[in-house]
C-alpha cells in the first residue's frame, strides 16, 4: 500500500522526499480521524510504544502519547533525567532493560546530539527521534512542513527563513534538511555567534539582519531562545537580542501578506515575538500543535506497521 523502507525515523537527513510525502498523505487522513467522534483506529493494536524521555518535555511527549493511543497502541511513559542515569545505569542499560518488554517502538528524546544510531544497535524496536540534542527533531519539521503545505498547497520553491539560535536548534536542522528536499530556498538569521561553523556549505543563506530578510520570506520560523545559554555569552543581553531579532508590530509590516509565521513553541513572548502579535500569530501555532498529532500518528503507524518489509539497515 505505502512505500516505506525505514525501520527508524532518526532524522530528516535520512528521509527521501518520497518518504516525507508518504508521511504527509497519512497525516492528512489521521487528521481527519481526530475530527471524528470516535477518534481511534486499531492500526497499532497489540503494539507497545515506549516514550523514553531522557530530557524533560511535556508538549512533544503528550503529542506522541496521544498519537500512540489514538492508534490503539499500549503506551508506557518512561522519563529519566540524565543525572539519575549518571548514578551508574547507562542509557544503554536502560534500553536493554526496556528491551525485555519487547517494545515495538521507542520514541526517544535525549540530550546527546546524534546519539540514536548507536542506541538502535541495542534494541530490536523501531526508534522515532523525539529530539536528540541539537541534531534533529524530525517530527517537528514534518509537522511544520505539513502545515505549510496545507496552507500554501506546495512546498516547492518557497523562501523559508529561520530566525534565532540556529546553533543549538534541532528544529532548525530538521527543517533545513526537510525544506531543501522540496527545493525551497533556506535562509537563517541570527547573531553570528549562534550560526554554526561553515553552515553556508549546507547551501543555506546566512544573514544577521532580520529587517532585510523579512520581505522575501514565504515562511518564517522563529526559534525559542534558551535564556540559560546566556551564561556562555552568545549575545550580550536579551534586550539587545530583542532589538535585533524579535518580531514586533513594526517589523511584521515588512513581511508578505501571506507570510506564514511559525514557532515550535513554547514562545517566549516579547523575546522571539512581541506579545502584541499574539492574536495574529497564535492560530497558526495552535494549528502546528494539531498537525503535530497527525504527523506523529503517521510516523508511529509507518514504523509500527511496515515492519518486515524493510531491509535491516545497520
Amino acid at each position: 500500500m505505502v512505500n516505506w523502507q525505514k525501520k527508524h525515523i532518526l532524522g530528516i537527513k535520512d528521509l527521501t522526499r518520497q518518504e516525507i510525502e508518504v508521511v504527509f498523505n497519512l497525516a492528512a487522513s489521521f487528521k481527519e480521524l481526530s475530527q471524528r467522534e470516535v477518534k481511534k483506529a486499531p492500526a497499532l493494536r497489540g503494539k507497545t510504544v515506549i516514550n523514553l524521555f531522557f530530557e524533560s518535555s511535556t508538549r512533544t511527549r503528550t503529542s506522541f502519547e496521544l498519537a500512540a493511543k489514538r492508534l490503539s497502541a499500549d503506551v508506557l511513559n518512561f522519563s529519566s533525567s540524565t543525572s539519575s542515569l549518571s548514578k551508574g545505569e547507562t542509557i544503554v542499560d536502560t534500553i536493554k532493560n526496556l528491551e525485555s518488554y519487547h517494545p515495538d517502538i521507542l520514541v526517544i528524546r535525549i540530550g546527546y546530539s546524534n546519539s540514536l544510531y548507536s542506541l538502535s544497535q541495542y534494541t530490536s524496536a523501531s526508534i522515532v527521534n523525539a529530539g536528540d540534542g541539537a541534531n534533529e527533531h524530525p517530527t517537528q519539521a514534518l509537522l511544520d512542513m505539513f502545515t505549510v503545505k496545507e496552507i500554501k498547497g506546495t512546498l516547492e520553491g518557497l523562501s523559508v527563513l529561520i530566525v534565532g539560535d540556529i546553533k543549538h536548534s534541532r528544529v532548525a536542522r530538521s527543517n533545513i534538511f526537510g525544506f531543501q528536499k522540496f527545493s525551497s530556498s533556506l535562509r537563517v538569521c541570527g547573531p553570528p555567534t549562534l550560526i554554526p561553523y561553515e553552515f553556508h556549505k549546507l547551501g543555506v543563506d546566512i544573514s544577521y539582519n532580520l529587517d532585510e530578510c523579512l520581505p522575501q520570506a514565504d515562511v518564517i520560523i522563529f526559534l525559542r531562545i534558551q535564556q540559560e545559554r546566556q551564561t556562555s555569552s552568545f549575545f550580550p543581553s536579551i534586550r539587545e537580542y530583542v532589538n535585533n531579532f524579535s518580531l514586533n508590530p513594526e517589523r511584521i509590516k515588512r513581511t508578505k501578506k501571506d507570510c506564514l509565521i511559525m514557532h515550535p513553541g513554547p514562545v517566549n513572548w516579547d523575546i522571539e515575538i512581541s506579545s502584541q502579535l499574539k492574536e495574529r500569530i497564535h492560530p497558526l501555532i495552535l494549528k502546528q500543535v494539531e498537525n503535530g498529532l497527525a504527523v506523529r500518528m503517521a510516523t508511529l503507524y509507518l514504523v509500527g506497521t511496515q515492519k518486515g518489509e524493510y531491509e535491516n539497515t545497520d
Partner: peptide
Amino acid sequence: REHLISSKYGMEGIP
C-alpha cells in the same frame, strides 16, 4: 573537530 560535519549534526566542535 568543528567542521561542516559537526554543524550538520548539531554537535559541539573543537576549532
